[in-house]
């Protein structure tokens, strides 16, 4: 490559790790938040099912 082009492109490769890290960390952080919300929802739904069973048991015993 001629020296002027080499100079023009000189910052391209060294900056690549920082760009990849910026984009990767951005999407990883969003994904982690989504997973936390998803797990929380699943946990709450499981608790709700247990409570519904407890209410049904109590109603059956009451009758």
């Amino acid at each position: 490559m001629n020296p002027i082009l080499a100079d023009i492109y000189s910052t391209i490769l060294p900056s690549a790790p920082y760009i990849i890290a910026a984009y990767a960390l951005l999407w990883v952080a969003l994904l982690v938040y989504v997973l936390v919300v998803f797990r929380g929802t699943k946990k709450a739904e499981a608790q709700l099912m247990l409570l519904e069973e407890a209410v049904a048991d109590r109603a059956a015993k009451g009758e």
Binding site: I4, T11, A16
Partner: peptide, 23 residues
């Protein structure tokens, strides 16, 4: 700016390309 200029595509470029700006 770099010491000189080169034709890239249809444009004369005389500066370093900043890929980092894509962030």
């Amino acid at each position: 700016t770099v010491n000189g200029a080169e034709l890239i595509g249809d444009v004369m470029v005389s500066q370093k390309m900043l890929l980092s700006q894509k962030i």
